[in-house]
Design a protein around this nucleic acid. Structure first.
Lengths: 199, 199
DNA sequence: ACCTGAACACCGTTCAAGT
DNA sequence: ACCTGAACACCGTTCAAGT
């Protein structure tokens, strides 16, 4: 078990905790996530995690943060695969977001869960803001190409944002039949295009 | 403490548990909800709840179900306040749904949380389906009035559904600034109207 | 039928103490 | 700096027993 001799069991217990937490979140759900079991899985004492996360909520917040970072990377990568037409770029981003959401359902739930601890959520808010800015850029391009109505971003971009988020959220919560998820997104994309087009 | 003599402490412990659970959910969040504390609050032993809910998840499921029922009533009531134009009816329903969501944020989160216990969620699925049928009716009226494009409901209604749900979901999760929530909905309604209009 | 009380196996968190 | 071990106050769940 000598991953890095001279540094106890782990070279990076913090990262190991986050990785393992995401696995059990995915496999057994949020209710089954316990700090003590995490510590057991990693072969450290049950008190060890407290050196890296002040409490369980801090670990969950950090986990949600990594989710936003990976989402951001996923969307950035997807944009390089898109051509220059607004419709195509919107479609690529929509599929990328919904794909991430369904592939990481429990994590997405955590990322958007209510923060009843109103401190420490600044970092999360900022991370959520960052990915919404990818939509802002997309909408801006659409406006320059005349595919999207003029107006301030809070008014023009918000509807697009909530539509994508709503689709992903419904898919994740299991309220949409699986075949609807597969075939419904293209209809939603067409509706978004029409909804934000100049009149 | 004789609420109903001859029937122990409570006339209806089940209902009392659900009521108290919703209060603490609203006031202290889902993490603070414990069966033992619920029992303590109601003056019964900690084992009493198990007579009415086989485990904690069963109580949460029942609570979510009451949420869907109240949502359904709220929406039904709102429809009586609307005139006959599609735009007006859509606006009334949108405000009613978003109003319910923000007034019952934690409960809405619970209603749409992932069911990692895939049993027993049939009743919840059915309840969610019931409120979506109110949108189906609305869309059907819009189609008959020529305000909404023709087509099967899964294709025409789904985009409207996910837009409203996405807006409510963003508002509930705290990702939208409060003033955006207030002023943004009317823009979203206009966008929905344009998005599902005949081309 | 409905509830109690004790018991069991688990938690999260803290804190002195070790290396 | 990083972790351990014991301790504390809490859980959810079960089950014999009471009324």
């Amino acid at each position: 078990m000598h991953i890095r001799p001279g540094r106890y069991h782990h070279g990076d217990l913090r990262a190991a905790l986050l990785n393992r937490a995401e696995e059990t979140l995915r496999e057994k759900g949020p209710a089954a996530l316990s700090l003590r079991e995490l510590a057991r899985d990693l072969g450290v004492s049950h008190a060890a995690p407290s050196r890296h996360f002040k409490d369980k909520q801090a670990l969950l917040d950090a986990l949600a943060l990594t989710g936003f970072e990976r989402l951001d990377e996923t969307l950035k990568a997807s944009r390089e695969r898109a051509d220059e037409s607004f419709a195509e770029r919107l479609a690529v981003m929509a599929h990328a977001y919904v794909g991430f959401a369904t592939a990481n359902a429990e994590l997405l739930d955590l990322m958007y869960s209510i923060k009843h601890d109103p401190e420490a959520s600044e970092a999360l808010d900022a991370a959520a803001q960052r990915w919404s800015e990818q939509i802002v850029e997309l909408i801006g391009e659409g406006q320059r190409q005349g595919q999207v109505r003029e107006g301030p971003m809070e008014r023009v971009g918000l509807p697009v944002f909530v539509t994508l988020h709503g689709y992903a959220s419904m898919a994740v919560s299991g309220m949409l039949p699986l075949e609807t998820i597969e075939h419904g997104l293209d209809d939603v994309i067409a509706y978004i295009l029409q909804g934000c087009a100049p009149e």
